[in-house]
Design a protein around this nucleic acid. Structure first.
Lengths: 349, 349
DNA sequence: GTGAAAGCGCTAACAT
DNA sequence: ATGTTAGCGCTTTCAC
């Protein structure tokens, strides 16, 4: 038994129409701010709606218009500054345009990503914004969307597909800058800790690393490239591998901050001086990068903006203002942030 | 112009019925696994549905059944390990029970919280799961829900209201343990950095701090209680205030880790030895607590479990399995994690 | 075990 | 500027 339940009856536009002695159609038009409705009538409608506690029935409306005004969002995890900013940016744009967001986490598995996609498909989202899971290696689970012409936009972790727009930063260039910076600080044997190379973000950062070596006429040593899952634990393991190397490397560039930090700390505990023995750089500008000692050199990029751009492009497409089918890639700016972990000439700070 | 768009026509139960020469009613029953439908018929229906690429129209279904099977979630921010785990826990339970989640961030403002609540109300969520914003001081924006008998469950940051269930940890006890631990390490003048005392979590942690002092016959010095917004910047400011104190305190207990860490680091830079001069403790077990040097003593509590419990209780209530109107508060376990920042007798590690 | 038919609340084409 | 009407796709009562 429900203890509290007053006024459980839902008010419909028919109730409002009856009270006002007008037709339901006019009420509907008024509520939707249709230009052909008399201003006075509109006012009456709105105040009566308010008074009676009316709330629009989205389902009836969606059923009728064959649109949901809902955007699906699938991300690997929500627990980063970056993702939270992305979502905030999307929400801002979506709300302004009258769209709702359905958000879900793939928890880095392709399987859950597929399930989530199916749920979104059944909820008939008008479009999808996706950042891929760690181990996704095809996008068959988005085929249903593409077949139906429902737009899918990837951001950050994108998939190269002619039918899908991607919003990214220039990971190659950013990584190239990081590596060049380390080289500029005197590093000659730089370890690169990377992630799953299926993901553009890690593949591109690796490319940037390689290009920078080439730019500075340094040979590429495959033994210096460690492919990991970029977790905190992976950082510890990487440190153990590094300690086995002979000679020791003189620089480490990790593809994310979490891994960089745990690797740095493990090496430090083993008596390695940072940055004198080994200079360090990460990627993402996570809060931890400002806490670890020494503070971590890293790359910052704008989550909120990425979210806004992704959502805005999708909505413009849905509203017919712009067509993203012709847009393949949108590149946002990023920034190298130099901190003590890589600075061997402190006077340069 | 849409470049790709094949099979844009939606399949309905009527299409399936026609192909199978049965009635739409039977198709509907079959799809919903109604017991009164012949097993063979069911099989035929399912395979035909699959073949034709049928997907159920949630809107028509919701419109008809007058239920949405959707749960609204409003949180201050998504960017913490804790919140991300909470959401993951909720998703798990909700998916299993056939419910969907609509998630939104209040970004710590009561205003956005109210807007979000209104959106949720209009989307006719079956129930609401809320963790309050920093500055919310009443719950009028949830009145619409309560009036209609739509259940609202608070978690972590709860509001004391007879009509609302709350899921929390015992913040008083946890804070009391933290403080007692500091006292056990020889602290006598312990600063407590707290947040907005409207929020139960901070008010209760303050209480726990006070009770522990009482338990150990220590006088309460109001000057040692710093009310802040618990941000990273607030930690720095708190450190500056602490440095002005004469005599210096010998312990700091901050109501979250972010603030504790920045305060700790600022004091360290000023030449204070941690934990010898000032012992430190935080709250939340954020990843940074394991990165800062020395590692931060803190309180861990289970986000995923809190999410699961909140969602499960809501769903049980909605399904009529249990009634939460009688349940006022559910308390989950938490755990003191002792690390070097508070350990003055290293042999105890 | 299956079918017929009504109706959930809204919108939009058409009519006035 | 407003009204009439049909129908979006589904579920469910009542009938057989």
């Amino acid at each position: 038994m429900q203890i509290i339940s007053t006024g459980n009856k839902e008010i419909t536009i028919y109730d409002i129409a009856r009270k006002l002695n007008i037709s339901p159609a006019t009420v509907s038009r008024g509520l939707n701010d249709h230009p052909a409705v008399n201003k006075e009538t509109k006012k009456k409608i709105f105040s009566m709606a308010k008074e009676m506690g009316y709330r629009s029935n989205t389902f009836a409306s969606n059923l009728r218009r064959q649109r949901t005004n809902t955007i699906g969002v699938i991300v690997p995890r929500l627990n980063s500054n970056f993702m939270s900013s992305v979502i905030a940016g999307m929400e801002k744009v979506a709300n302004q345009a009258g769209y709702n967001l359905i958000i879900s986490q793939s928890l880095e598995t392709a399987k859950k990503e597929a399930t989530n996609a199916q749920t979104m498909f059944n909820s008939r989202v008008d479009g999808l914004l996706v950042s891929l899971a760690y181990d996704t290696d095809n996008i068959d689970h988005f085929k249903d969307f593409l077949k139906k012409g429902i737009p899918v936009i990837f951001f950050d972790r994108v998939f190269n597909h002619k039918q899908c727009t991607g919003i990214v930063i220039d990971n190659i260039k950013a990584a190239q800058e990081v590596t060049a910076h380390l080289i500029g600080q005197g590093c000659r044997r730089i370890v690169h800790i990377t992630g799953n190379l299926k993901r553009n973000v890690y593949a591109d950062r690796l490319k940037g690393y390689k290009y920078a070596l080439t730019d500075h006429n340094l040979a590429l040593d495959p033994n210096l490239i460690l492919e990991t899952n970029l977790s905190v634990e992976a950082g510890v393991e990487a440190a153990e591998k590094i300690l086995q190397m002979n000679p020791l490397p003189d620089g480490v560039f990790a593809a994310n901050d979490a891994c960089a930090v745990s690797c740095l700390q493990t090496l430090k505990q083993a008596g390695i001086a940072i940055p004198q023995d080994i200079a360090f750089a990460g990627f993402n500008n996570d809060p931890v990068s400002k806490v670890v000692e020494p503070n971590l050199t890293t790359v910052d990029y704008p989550g909120s903006e990425m979210g806004e751009v992704a959502a805005q492009n999708l909505i413009n497409h849905l509203n017919g203002t712009a067509n993203i089918n012709n847009t393949n890639t949108i590149i946002l700016r990023s920034e190298l942030i130099i901190r003590e972990s890589s600075l061997r000439h402190p006077e340069h700070i």
